[in-house]
């Protein structure tokens, strides 16, 4: 890593990632540069075109469409901010926002469990690779299939979950049909599905912590918990940050589980998420303008939350380093 003065090592790693274009030495180089530029632009043409056509244009279009009354087929009728004003008083939209944020309770729970699993899996125990694979299987499984499976597992009378609770004499609710238990049911499933992924990232982070840190702490007489608190936890902080950011973004867009497990948005709309609501309004009721306004609000919310997280983390990281 450290760039030594010996020229021998220079070949393995360039000292500067992007050196400024070298000054032309001969007359021919500028022509060569022009060819290079042309090829380079050709090579990036596809992603740039894709970005313009399928991301930028739809985004601008969404911004405009959110200011119109529009069923997706007929003409767009410009109505200014009316859709956004209507959103403020929309009970259903507020409820789906609440539900969506409620699901995020699962994020810290999942992170805590997966960190504990990663710490345990960091020990050289028998069958470690097999454990790692087993915990990872739900991650790679299709979410549609998993949602179908859990919908059946949450069946009040014959489902796996209540059968299991029955072993302890607990009479479980009819999970997905119960306005109180439907959301926790979906959270439990999401935590179960995501554990393996977070665990894997945590494990990789823990394994890259220098052993000498732990050894030094042991010499100072630090206990297991102390070592965890003051070495492991700060060292995996970047992974925690990465996981929180990505899972908040993913959680804000939760849809598939909801649409499959509770096709009507759950009892009293108690499971409907924002994306579910958008999807329903746009593709069932053809309220394209209004649905687009909701999708713009969702996009902005995600953007703002992500920026805040980066802000907070920068302060945190600075604090740790200084």
């Amino acid at each position: 890593m450290t760039s030594t003065a010996t020229p021998a090592t220079a070949g393995t790693r360039p000292p500067a990632p992007d050196p400024a274009p070298a000054p032309p030495r001969r007359g021919g180089t500028s022509r060569l540069h022009r060819t290079e530029k042309r090829w380079a632009l050709l090579f990036v043409a596809a992603p740039v075109l894709g970005y313009l056509l399928f991301i930028l244009y739809p985004t601008l279009f969404a911004l405009y469409a959110s200011l119109t009354r529009w069923n997706g087929l007929g003409p767009m009728q410009f109505i200014g901010l009316d859709n956004y004003v209507a959103l403020l008083g929309d009970e259903r939209f507020r409820q789906t926002l609440f539900n969506t944020f409620f699901y995020m309770i699962g994020i810290p729970i999942g992170l805590a469990i997966s960190l504990a699993l990663a710490v345990m899996m960091n020990r050289k125990i028998f069958g470690r690779a097999a454990f790692r694979a087993i915990y990872y299987v739900p991650v790679i499984s299709s979410i549609a299939a998993i949602a179908i499976l859990w919908q059946w597992a949450y069946n009040g009378d014959f489902g796996l979950v209540n059968q299991f609770l029955g072993l302890f004499g607990i009479d479980g609710p009819n999970w997905l049909a119960d306005p109180v238990w439907a959301k926790p049911a979906i959270i439990m499933m999401a935590v179960w599905k995501g554990l393996g992924y977070s665990m894997l990232l945590y494990l990789a982070a823990i394994q890259s912590v220098p052993r000498s840190l732990y050894e030094a702490a042991e010499l100072d007489g630090a206990g297991g918990w102390q070592k965890f608190r003051s070495i492991t936890l700060p060292m995996v902080q970047p992974v925690t940050f990465f996981l929180i950011v990505t899972q908040v973004i993913g959680g804000a867009m939760i849809f598939i589980e909801i649409q499959i497990m509770t096709p009507t948005g759950g009892p009293e709309y108690s499971t409907a998420s924002v994306v579910y609501h958008i999807w329903l309004q746009a593709f069932r009721y053809q309220q394209m303008g209004y649905a687009t306004a909701m999708s713009v609000v969702l996009g902005l919310l995600i953007l703002v939350i992500t920026l805040i997280q980066f802000r907070l983390n920068r302060r945190n990281a600075g604090f740790v380093v200084d």
Binding site: L56, F61, A65, M253, A282, M288, L298, G299
Partner: peptide, 15 residues
Amino acid sequence: GIMIPFPTIMIPQFV
């Protein structure tokens, strides 16, 4: 482009 979530652009793309 990563910052634009799919639900935000799915309606225009669909149209």
